[in-house]
Simulated assay, not measured.
Amino acid sequence: MKLRTSPLAKAAAALAMVALVASCGLPRSGPNKREIFAGSVLKEGDAFIVAVNSRVTAATSVTPVLGFSKAFLNAGVVGADTIRPGDTLGLTIWENVDDGLLASEGQAATVLEEVQVDAAGFIFVPYAGRIKAAGNTPDRIRQLITEKLDTQTPDPQVIVRRLAGDGATVSVVGGVGAQGVYPIERPTRTLSAMLAAAGGIAIEQEVAQITVIRGKHKCTIWWEDLFSNPSFDIALRDGDRILVEEDTRAFTALGATGTQNRIPFTTQTLSAIEAIAQVGGLSSNLADPTGVFVFRNEPEEIAKQVLGRTDLVGTQRMVYVLDLTEPNGMFEARDFVIRDGDTVYVTEAPYVQWQKTLSALTGAAGTANTLASAAGN
């Protein structure tokens, strides 16, 4: 006896198979919109889900502000002839007598070569004693030595020459043409001049940062700002350390985009639309343009402004939603600022999952028919 299956039974079986396949967890790039919204605080989740608009964009448009403190900006240019500990001086002393304190018999001048300024900033001159050299100019040192010797020999004449100036140096490391230790000389007394002496910037200028470390103080500026803001071309000091490095900020791209990776910033500021373009745009075969999400841990003050609440304490988990199909959706994405550590996630279009389900069903049905044919033979 041959049993016949009704169309209703076939439909029910098909629906059951669809449900079975769907419940098996087909492969996908990540959660869908429904699952993300299920994690909202309103649904007992732990994240605030916020649709991006002009108010939200204004509240979250925070970019790193780099610059020098007043201590750096107000430092005057060091004189090229100011003596420093470690410098080497050359002294010549003339005495107006035949039998002088220092000069050999028959000679009027005494030459003291390579007199080094000690760590405390002093030099020693016979009969004049310890002379404070560091912080003084060669002319002032000449006056001090003359005053000391004047009481012991009539009308002494002194010449002070700076032979080497490596006592006042800075170190330049990182993304420059020639890393090294450089003396502060007349042509290299400012930051831009010293960087030029070190071979200039050897990394992408748009994301290059310059950090100057002076004792316990450290400040960072953008390379581009060094030339757009003349006050940032600060005077250097002995012992300054200059570090040139690329911006370390990055965001993560996941979901239905051209690539899924950790992406470094290529500009000082980065919008959501630029971030999407940077990873190859939305996948035309997979992406849902109504489901572009930005996941972020938002500082307390900004979270309060975004949500209009005063009862929040500490960093808050925020999920910002961009719908590119809205009339102003592209503009909102263009104005919304991406920050360091953000995760940009694009959901798959609903039909993609149905396609996967149907493909799985078609494959399963083909397998079943093959098995049935084999069993009937």
Rank of each mutant, 00 (worst) to 15 (best):
R34D: 11
G239T: 02
N96Q: 15
F265Q: 03
N136A: 14
R186I: 06
A360N: 01
D240A: 07
T362R: 14
A75L: 03
K33H: 08
D118M: 05
T343I: 15
A193N: 13
D150T: 12
D340W: 00
F232S: 11
D118S: 00
S192C: 01
R309N: 01
I36Y: 04
T190M: 12
W354A: 10
D81R: 09
S284F: 11
L20R: 02
T290Y: 01
I83K: 09
R237G: 12
T269V: 15
S29I: 11
L66G: 04
D288C: 02
D46Y: 12
L324E: 08
R130G: 02
L361C: 04
I276F: 11
M194N: 11
S231V: 15
D240Q: 09
T362Y: 08
K70E: 15
A168W: 12
N297L: 09
G76I: 06
D335Q: 10
E298L: 14
Y320K: 00
A134P: 10
F37K: 12
V56S: 01
Q316V: 05
L144I: 09
D139T: 14
F295G: 00
A333Y: 07
V172S: 13
V313P: 00
T220M: 03
E204D: 15
R34P: 00
E44T: 14
I49T: 08
A80N: 12
G329T: 00
E204P: 01
V207I: 15
G341R: 05
A253E: 05
V244G: 00
T220I: 03
L361R: 03
G106F: 02
G39H: 11
R241P: 05
A51T: 15
E35C: 02
E224G: 03
C24S: 15
R28W: 03
D240F: 12
T220F: 07
A198L: 05
R28T: 14
M318L: 05
V65G: 07
E326V: 04
L324I: 06
G200A: 09
D81Q: 10
D98Y: 06
I145N: 05
E206Y: 02
P299W: 01
A365W: 14
P327Y: 01
V115D: 09
G79A: 14
I145S: 06
A75H: 13
R339A: 03
A235V: 08
G86D: 05
T362D: 13
T362F: 08
E326M: 07
